[in-house]
């Protein structure tokens, strides 16, 4: 355990991990799980929580016959209970070139957040899948469960290299094709996708995932510190935009950024998903311990 923590401590400090130990991942939806677990599922199964009655049919297990009702009504009814199943958590980390930008870099923030969320998932015996993506899925750890996998996610995250362009639609297509079952999908990215994010996210939401879109931007993106006549180079595709920085242009940029973020949030909210906007200079601990609890991603 100590070894695991030591490795993970490169991303999360010990106090933070201690506080994470008491937290768990929540889903707004009651989802099907793979194995019997600690979550309520839509299925009726074996648990202590009563769900409903139904008439007895031949072949039913006689242990679940409600004998009290038989005594009063002389009819056989079966007691149905809520079945508790495990929760699938899928964390998708954007490792494209744009995420490496910023001071402090967005990548640092995203890695810490992914580590924290992964940690919470594993310690609560949820099924965790962690993917990194740019043009497609670059790397993936599937179906991890239990603390034993903590070193794996640490290694996964620390080995991530932020480079290349993004094809978010392709990524979502791959996730939808390969992932069976539903669960929580947490996407950590700056969401600067030139081809758009709507159709891609529709694929995820359509599969029944409980989607959390966490958009991380750097302070320089919120408030650009540029002057003069500039040739702006896109870090991913080397696209060029020649601009002359002026107050009016900065004003328009900020307006566009706000509109872009608001549009993403609106898109998520309308589809029952959650949206979180974070600044890379903010504290990950504060985000996890306070804000994610408020929106019921964690408890």
């Amino acid at each position: 355990m100590n070894n695991n923590r030591r490795k993970l401590t490169q991303l999360l400090d010990a106090d933070f991990m201690a506080r994470l130990d008491s937290m768990d991942v929540l889903s707004k939806k009651i989802l099907h799980g793979k194995m019997q677990g600690q979550r309520r599922s839509k299925r009726r199964g074996q648990s202590v929580e009563f769900a409903d009655h139904r008439p007895y049919v031949a072949g039913d297990d006689l242990r679940f016959v409600d004998w009290n009702i038989y005594a009063r009504l002389e009819q056989l009814f079966l007691k149905l209970f809520m079945e508790e199943q495990d929760l699938t958590v899928h964390i998708a980390v954007d490792v494209s070139g744009s995420v490496g930008y910023g001071e402090p870099a967005k990548s640092t923030f995203i890695l810490k957040l992914a580590a924290a969320l992964g940690y919470v998932s594993l310690v609560n015996n949820n099924r965790l899948t962690m993917s990194s993506f740019n043009l497609g899925i670059v790397n993936q750890l599937k179906y991890m469960r239990g603390r034993n996998y903590l070193p794996n996610i640490a290694e996964f995250l620390l080995d991530a290299e932020f480079e290349g362009m993004t094809d978010f639609d392709n990524v979502c297509k791959q996730i939808a094709a390969t992932q069976s079952g539903t669960g929580i999908m947490i996407i950590l990215s700056d969401f600067f996708f030139k081809e758009g994010y709507e159709s891609a996210m529709r694929r995820i939401i359509g599969r029944g995932y409980d989607l959390y879109a966490i958009q991380v931007l750097s302070p320089q993106e919120f408030d650009p510190e540029m002057t003069g006549d500039l040739k702006l180079l896109d870090i991913e595709d080397s696209d060029v935009a020649e601009v002359t920085i002026s107050n009016a242009l900065i004003k328009h940029y900020k307006k566009n950024l706000s509109a872009y973020c608001a549009q993403l949030q609106d898109y998520c909210v309308r589809r029952g998903s959650s949206y979180v906007l974070a600044k890379s200079s903010d504290s990950v601990e504060m985000l996890v311990l306070n804000y994610l609890r408020k929106i019921n991603l964690l408890r």
Partner: peptide
């Protein structure tokens, strides 16, 4: 001789210039 500056995406900048 415009000075080159790297940004994560030119998406919003182009929109801003167009808007302007």
């Amino acid at each position: 001789k415009r000075q080159e500056s790297v940004v994560p995406s030119t998406l919003l900048w182009k929109r801003a210039v167009q808007d302007l």
